[in-house]
């Protein structure tokens, strides 16, 4: 009995070690920066959001609120390649299949890291995917009343509420999907994000989408968690239309049963 338990316990430790090492592969140290100290016990300033963060959530939550007739029409027209409505990418119409920008907040759900950088008047989100930059203004300006739509939002303004950094954003391009599952939004979407650095290595974000044209009530997210990638760096990761087309012709189309023209 004792020997069997010892063997099982050893197997358990091996599983933990192997899976931890596999996870560590995702963020190998950059020799030029050196290995940074890490771990929740390392002291942190809750008002300092800087660092490279990575999450693995795919949407705000599993259950969006009921949609309006307009919202349902958009949702039905979207043919994603993730989730219960997934179709082969060759047969879908995910905007990213043509290298359209992911938009915000979807870029947060793409699995690539982003860096938070603070300047005197802005907090910048520097996304690896597309090496895109989102500006969150902290200079006290107001959000505009009638903003033109933009992929990452026309204007984002942020302020501290205790240890929570609250960001309001308006002016979204409705060609972008909210997430990989094809949940839609309109140009009228108002996004609130509440960032809270729980410890040195954990950034928690709660989002609220208020978009009466698309949803019958506000969509409040789960607590979305992003982990500090202390020893990583932002790499080059562009969606290149010519590369995308080559991939589509050589792999995606035939795999999806689509004959190349």
């Amino acid at each position: 009995m004792r020997n069997s338990f010892t063997r099982l316990f050893t197997a358990l430790l091996v599983v933990l070690l192997v899976s931890t090492l596999a996870f560590a592969q995702r963020g190998r140290p950059d020799a030029r920066r050196g290995v940074q100290p890490s771990g929740p016990s390392v002291p942190h300033d809750p008002h300092d959001l800087t660092g490279i963060w990575r999450g693995n959530t795919q949407s705000l939550s599993n259950a969006p609120p009921p949609m309006t007739a307009w919202g349902k029409e958009q949702f039905d027209a979207h043919k994603p390649s993730y989730g219960p409505r997934a179709v082969p990418p060759a047969l879908g119409n995910d905007p990213t299949g043509k290298c359209d920008p992911l938009g915000y907040p979807r870029i947060l759900f793409f699995g690539r890291p982003f860096e938070m950088i603070q300047t005197k008047d802005r907090i910048l989100q520097f996304f690896e995917w597309g090496r895109a930059l989102r500006e969150i203004w902290i200079d006290g300006r107001e959000i505009p009343k009638d903003p033109d739509p933009k992929w990452l939002g026309n204007t984002a303004v942020g302020k501290w509420d205790g240890d929570t950094f609250v960001v309001d954003t308006v002016g979204f391009d409705e060609r972008a999907w909210i997430d990989h599952f094809g949940n839609p939004h309109s140009e009228d979407m108002h996004l609130e994000e509440r960032y809270h650095r729980l410890d040195r290595d954990t950034l928690e974000v709660v989002m609220t989408i208020d978009d009466p044209k698309t949803y019958t009530k506000a969509w409040v997210s789960d607590k979305l968690t992003f982990r500090l990638q202390a020893n990583d760096k932002i790499r080059e990761d562009f969606c290149v239309p010519s590369e995308e087309e080559s991939f589509n012709q050589g792999v995606r189309n035939p795999a999806g049963g689509v004959i190349n023209k």
Partner: peptide
């Protein structure tokens, strides 16, 4: 056996990052 199996399942769940893959399971 049950306890260790459950522990192993939990460890695999928390230590393996859940990643999204674009239509791979469909294609």
């Amino acid at each position: 056996l049950i306890v260790v199996s459950l522990l192993m399942a939990c460890l695999l769940t928390v230590s393996t990052p859940a990643t999204a893959h674009h239509g791979t399971g469909i294609s």
